[in-house]
Design a protein around this nucleic acid. Structure first.
Length: 425
RNA sequence: GGAGGAAUAGCGAAGCGGUCAUAACGCGGCGGUCUUGAAAACCGUUUGAGAGCAAUCUCACGGGGGUUCGAAUCCCUCUUCCUCCGCCA
């Protein structure tokens, strides 16, 4: 959520910055400010009525004691009570509309981002060298199938399109990757959490994924179950809701968390050849990093998170690049995002393996996540998140970038201690 | 699944239709007095949200609704926790 006070005082700036995200907010903002005025007027009126009600209510027992006839007072009070109820009903209606307007407004992008979409993303730095092959390299789907790492057919048999099964060395490679990620994060001071894989609605709301992406997740329905639960689309949803409605003492910040979870997404997988295989599925494994910081520390924390993600890809020995996203390519909740993109030979291009973002106070406002300063002042915290990493694109990259002419695949050095061998054949 | 009980500030807990939510009382935290320092003792202080330039006002006793002039207190409903019984990997 954007600060309503900021919107009130700088509507032009808000409209301009959201335009950079490709979001035309002019009508929304005008509408919102109208509702805001209406809302505040109603609050003022209602509170004056309530103050009067409270004042007289305190006098009634006194009157009773003195034996005064209070029936005319009670009659007036009944009228007062009725008009308060009437006002409150109107207020609730206005506030409902106001809140839904507030909730759909995306976060403001940082001013230094280029406006526009993907085409304006800026690569910041490159690592490693483009792999060269003196043979015709195979794509990861063929490699994984031939080496028996992934069983695509039976995954589809069990659950339908968009699911696969890791088996044998493939399952071990997957597990080794996850352990490597977790161990590396642990050495950098993250706390490791294993969270529920199904979450209540308010988690998605705080993270900023709902109401917009309500239809992008898998909902669970059970007879007689009042609680609306969904399979989490990323551990970010859980980790960002961890401190929902809490005030964290300044001394406990920053909080640095990682979690491993499968991620469940409905997004219809593309059938383009370039996105075959495990690049986009309904379920994939990911280690997620989430950090809560003081507002003034979030820029530094952001650079650290980017570096944490880069470090993993670097240690795996990949050729990759880090890209600063244009405003329009950042997701709705985020003020800035850097993607780490890895080179996939069969696509002759880069695909995202990690996305690191700073939400600033956008998620904190939605989830009432605050900090109390040593001097007693209460501030919203900043939340940041980044994948560190999703395996579904790392494993294809490993088999493609590390393939040999005979169809075998070299195991990255950092994974060898988890697997106990250096070649998959 | 069945039967009971409970939810009040950081924690424990009192209040059970109005004069105790400016939330008693206790613990903890913070500041101070005393002390070479500490402990003890004593004194003070310690929830958050919203409206308003401000004075000030409003809201919150697990969530939501209702009864009433007035609800922490009565009623309905949901959630969570505890005790007992049943079932179960």
């Amino acid at each position: 959520m954007i600060d309503i006070k900021y919107i009130r005082e700088n509507p032009e700036d808000v409209i301009g910055r959201l335009a950079a995200k490709g979001y035309d907010a002019a009508v929304d903002i005008e509408n919102l400010l109208g509702l805001d005025r209406e809302r505040r007027t109603l609050i003022g009126e209602t509170e004056a009525l309530k103050a009067e009600q409270n004042r007289v209510t305190k006098l009634i027992p006194k009157y009773k004691k003195e034996g005064v006839d209070i029936s005319p007072v009670l009659k007036k009070m009944k009228e007062l009570s009725d008009s308060i109820k009437e006002n409150e009903e109107r207020l609730r209606e206005v506030e409902d509309r106001f809140n839904s307007c507030m909730l759909v407004l995306p976060n403001l992008p940082d001013p230094d981002l280029l406006p526009g979409g993907k085409e304006n993303n800026q690569p910041l730095r490159y690592f490693g060298k483009t792999p060269k092959f003196d043979f015709e390299p195979k794509n990861h789907v063929d490699l994984c199938t031939e080496l028996g790492l992934i069983d695509y057919k039976r995954g589809v048999k069990l659950s339908g399109s968009g699911f696969w099964i890791y088996r044998g060395l493939g399952a071990r490679l997957e597990w080794a990757l996850l352990n490597f990620f977790i161990d590396t994060h642990l050495s950098r001071g993250f706390e490791f959490l294993l969270v529920p894989h199904m979450l209540g609605y308010e988690c998605g709301l705080a993270a900023g994924q709902f109401p917009k992406f309500k239809n992008e997740v898998f909902w669970l329905e059970a007879e007689g179950d009042e609680r609306h639960r969904f399979m989490l689309p990323t551990a970010e949803t859980a980790l960002v809701s961890l401190h929902y409605d809490e005030i964290i003492p300044e001394s406990e910040l920053p909080k640095k968390y990682i979690s491993y979870t499968p991620c469940f997404r409905r997004e219809a997988g593309s059938y383009r050849a370039t996105e075959r295989g495990m690049v986009r599925g309904h379920q994939f494994n990911k280690v997620e990093m989430v950090e809560y910081t003081l507002p003034e520390d979030s820029d530094r924390a952001f650079e650290e998170l980017v570096e944490s993600a880069e470090n993993l890809v670097k240690l795996l020995g990949f050729h990759f690049r880090t890209v600063k996203l244009a405003a329009g390519d950042c997701s709705a909740s985020m003020a800035r995002t850097y993607d780490i993109e890895i080179y996939i030979p069969s696509m002759n291009g880069y695909i995202e393996v990690s996305s690191v973002s700073n939400a600033r106070d956008y998620q904190a406002r939605r989830g009432m996540m605050r900090t109390k300063r040593a001097n007693g002042k209460i501030d919203y915290v900043h939340t940041l998140n980044g994948s560190g990493l999703a395996t579904s694109r790392i494993l294809p990259a490993i088999v493609e970038q590390n393939q040999n002419a005979d169809g075998s695949v070299r195991v990255p050095e950092v994974l060898q201690k988890y697997l106990g061998f250096d070649l998959i054949k």
